[in-house]
Design a protein around this nucleic acid. Structure first.
Lengths: 336, 336
DNA sequence: CTGAAAGCGCTAACAC
DNA sequence: GTGTTAGCGCTTTCAG
């Protein structure tokens, strides 16, 4: 491997001079600078960033951990994070925890041993607390994305789960629905709890009784959920509309309904949190509360780099990004 | 930062002994091993992989460069790559070139300076040759994904662009269409050229004349393509069906058609390469040649690690993974 | 079984 | 302007 010493020897200077040329630091005569640069070209020299990191105690790598790489919400978020990282001179070490605590733990170990400069972390759920504490014990700069974790203080970029849920449910109410089911993510996840709260609030504000039988806790990735669904459908007084707490749950519900011969929105209205990317472009069908996914990533990355570079106060900040209600055709007026 | 020396001192051994405990190498008495392990726990020690990489000349990081993180084909591929990397003990440094040569070059520089162990590379197009040569000059293990690049010899995992295109077009022919447009990716990209060849082959085999006016070269990411589309529609003898060379082009075409008040498949049949992920789950509409995206990633990663660990012959291998024709409802019988 | 010395490639601090 | 020295945290080699 070519090192600065190889360059130094061939250019008749010391390694230090080469280092200075590479980093544009210190004063160097134009003559030697040119000579060194030329030798570097000739030998196709590329600096070894491991060696650099070792001495500088800085990797210029930021780790991004998301929970589902196939979900457009997270890929758009990743793009935002990546664009911003790149613009500010950082590389992205990317990980996908698959909503799985064991995988998440593996990534945390890796993050620590790689000595990345900071972590953008979308937690799997409340059980991520241990992993986050581990990071904090090592003073790893940290920004939480999309979900909060009880007991963890850190900069956090959240969506307006409660508010968004309230508006989705009020939309259904305005269409005349009174029996509205909630198919939710795991109770272990802050967004699921908040969406539940928003759901209840909307009902209460509109004097619609809350019925626990209409509320299901599932898992944000569970596309298929036949049993849960037929449970709902076989209620004495079944729902006429479904609020799915995220895009995958909505798709699962719609597939399930179709399997039972039911059509959306004719036989059942469906709305959900998170837009669908391509799917909505092709077929603007689902009524959703769309979150500014790109901004989650770009703002989170911005905050993280602020912290890494010491531009943040000590107090952790939290922001709640608003979602946008996009009314399409998956929810219709209740037939009387 | 806690180092092996801190551990060593506290455990009354030498750094070397600590290193041996960490790596399970050499012979160590159970007593000292236990003692060292306990101290490591107490101090929350995590090895510094930069220091390790520096001496071992191995990072256990593999770089994956894709061209579009919002395309389900690539995210599924990424998942395959990631799962396999993780299983085999490698980390993934992830990059997104956005079908952009300048971004691609930046990533190549980064890859080189990070001294990753190898690169899984989905090239932007023929212009990637310079970047690939740069990698090869540095003996960087390399596997090409999805696209070939003239002049570059390397292990390559490809889809059956020609064959898949032929089958899609023959499907349209079997429905009675004779005027079939091709909306293609850039001529600079091997898959686009191959899909063009397959298109021509299908026509020839079925004695349908080839008309250059029906063939458009665009860009795989160009969702909107109004001018190109109206050009086609205003032909003296306009097409009755469109073969879009990938999923995004198909969606762009369908949106464009709708903007003109045309319905798919009633007024125009549309088929394309690559499935749509969520979109197809929600609404199985587009007739496509679906590629085994996950396998692109997992097989490519497997091959790459084989090479990194010296388990490959010198000869570069190429595999062509078959696609699957999935007939849905976006293409219909030609009305006579 | 355990330790001391040297070096991976680079840069900060200090000479000259 | 440029060079020397030392050390970042770790492992290899060779002694004991």
């Amino acid at each position: 491997m070519i090192t600065i010493y190889d360059i130094a020897k061939k250019a008749n200077v010391s390694a230090m001079t080469v280092s200075r040329v590479i980093n544009n630091s210190g004063k160097i005569s134009d003559a030697t600078r040119q000579r060194v640069k030329q030798v570097m070209e000739e030998l196709h020299y590329v600096p070894n960033s491991n060696a650099r990191s070792l001495v500088l105690q800085k990797t210029h790598i930021i780790s991004l951990l998301i929970t589902d790489i196939t979900n457009p919400f997270y890929t758009t978020l990743a793009r935002g994070a990546e664009d911003t990282a790149k613009r500010l001179g950082y590389k992205l070490l990317f990980g996908n925890s698959d909503e799985n605590y064991a995988k998440e733990k593996d990534y945390v170990d890796m993050i620590l041993s790689t000595r990345v400069d900071g972590v953008l972390f979308a937690p799997t759920g409340d059980g991520s607390a241990a992993h986050l504490q581990q990071l904090q014990k090592h003073n790893m700069p940290l920004v939480l994305l999309d979900r909060e974790v009880p007991g963890i203080q850190a900069d956090t970029v959240l969506g307006d789960s409660k508010e968004g849920a309230r508006r989705l449910v009020e939309h259904l109410l305005s269409l005349g629905h009174r029996r509205i089911a909630l198919i939710n993510g795991s109770e272990d996840v802050s967004t699921a709890r908040q969406r539940h709260v928003g759901y209840k609030e909307a009902l209460k504000l509109n004097d619609v009784p809350y019925d626990e039988a209409l509320v299901l806790y599932a898992n944000y990735r569970e596309i298929q959920n036949e049993t849960a669904l037929s449970q709902l459908l076989h209620l004495p007084d079944p729902p006429t509309a479904i609020f799915a707490a995220n895009n995958f749950l909505a798709i699962g519900a719609i597939q399930g309904l179709r399997a039972q011969g039911l059509q959306v929105p004719d036989d059942m209205s469906v709305v959900c949190f998170d837009d669908l990317g391509l799917a909505s472009a092709l077929n603007p069908f689902l009524t959703v509360a769309a979150q500014p996914a790109y901004q989650f990533g770009s703002l989170g990355m911005q905050w993280l780099i602020d912290r890494i570079e010491g531009r943040s106060q000590d107090e952790p900040r939290t922001i709640i990004l608003p979602s946008e209600l996009i009314v399409r055709s998956s929810a219709a007026k209740l037939k009387s």
